[in-house]
Design a protein around this nucleic acid. Structure first.
Length: 325
DNA sequence: TGCTGCGCCGATAAATGG
DNA sequence: CCATTTATCGGCGCAGCA
């Protein structure tokens, strides 16, 4: 399993991305404790959901992963009930919900991937470099800055582009810069309720949660395999079956509604709702939906509580056209 | 109407196991 | 070495808001 699941020594050097440069014991994912929350709170009495989830799938790797988990120095992973194991069509027990919500640890990993157009590493060796950025930059790195009032640490260059004052990257649009700034933030707004890992993006969190729940929406129609991400399926189709998926961009974006409780996929939200009502009447999604109705204008609190990132409720629908696969 | 946040996407990197 | 898994991040569409 990817080291991502091996919660290793928390470190704060997101700028470093060449993991092979580090000794194994120092390498691994770098988790940045969310500054505003206490360190991860592993329950010894309950196994890691991830672990359980992984064990749900019949793969040997899951077992191995579990072993690694328990061996890791930081993770006190006990064996808990995996909420979902749902990839096998099993329904999560009510206990699952409880476990999910109870596991609210706060590790945020920062595995910075520098892609094209990156400045030299020296440009901003580590996130702390933010401190050297302009005050604007620093302020904009806080989640709160994501609100409309934030003034990104941008410097509109003569060409009308926007420059990140942290890494000097240039963006064509302000909002692209705003989005980019999240990468420099140590605070991950979306935490996995299973393992406490943090993400900047809700969808990234959704994807991640699937690794715990075992939900694999992308199924190969030529064999029994299923995948959590579309590109994984595409890669499989291409390499194993020699089939290259071809569809227009728009087609790809056709939504595929995924039940994060059991992995069931539906072409429309209506059908997904029907599925939820019949199969998972107590699902977090339905509860959140109900809470939303009740909350109305005033009670956002209830909604907030029920829509914790990483909770299945926020995972009700997503992804795109899997139908053609 | 324009701006912004959010959700989602694909591309791609990094890592693992067989 | 290859298939697979998982994560990161830039780009884009959409909805909400001033």
């Amino acid at each position: 399993m990817p080291r991502a699941f091996l919660v290793k020594k928390p470190s704060v050097s997101p700028g470093k991305r060449s993991w092979s440069d580090l000794p194994d014991h120092e390498r691994g994912d770098i988790y940045i404790p969310v500054s505003v929350t206490p360190p991860i709170l592993w329950e010894e009495t309950e196994a890691s959901v991830a672990e359980v989830a992984l064990c749900l799938s019949t793969r040997k790797e899951h077992i191995m992963c579990t072993q690694k988990y328990t061996q890791d120095q930081h993770t006190v992973v006990s064996t808990a009930e995996l909420p979902s194991c749902t990839s096998l069509g099993q329904h999560p027990s009510p206990e699952t919900e409880r476990i999910r919500s109870s596991q609210n640890s706060s590790y945020v990993r920062s595995k910075i991937k520098v892609t094209t157009g990156d400045p030299p590493v020296e440009a901003f060796p580590t996130i702390p470099s933010v401190a050297t950025a302009s005050p604007d930059a620093v302020s904009s790195l806080s989640p709160a800055s994501s609100s409309g009032t934030s003034s990104a640490p941008s410097t509109p260059v003569p060409s009308g582009k926007f420059v990140c004052q942290v890494c000097q990257k240039v963006f064509q649009f302000q909002r692209m810069l705003n989005r980019h700034l999240k990468c420099h933030s140590e605070q991950k707004r979306h935490l996995c309720t299973f393992c406490g890992k943090g993400f900047n993006d809700t969808f990234d969190l959704k994807r991640h949660v699937r690794t715990h729940t075992g939900v694999r929406p992308y199924k190969c129609n030529l064999c029994e395999k299923a995948f959590t991400q579309r590109c994984s399926l595409e890669s499989h189709m291409k390499k194993i079956h020699g089939v290259t998926q071809q569809y227009a961009y728009k087609e790809r974006r056709t939504k595929l509604y995924v039940c994060e409780e059991c992995g069931h996929t539906a072409p429309t939200q209506d059908s997904l709702l029907r599925h939820l009502h019949t199969q998972h009447p107590n699902s977090a999604f339905l509860r959140a939906k109900a809470a939303r109705r009740q909350a109305g204008a005033a009670g956002d609190a209830a909604l907030e509580e029920n829509s914790l990132p990483g909770s299945p409720l926020s995972l009700n629908s997503d992804d795109t056209a899997g139908s053609e696969m």
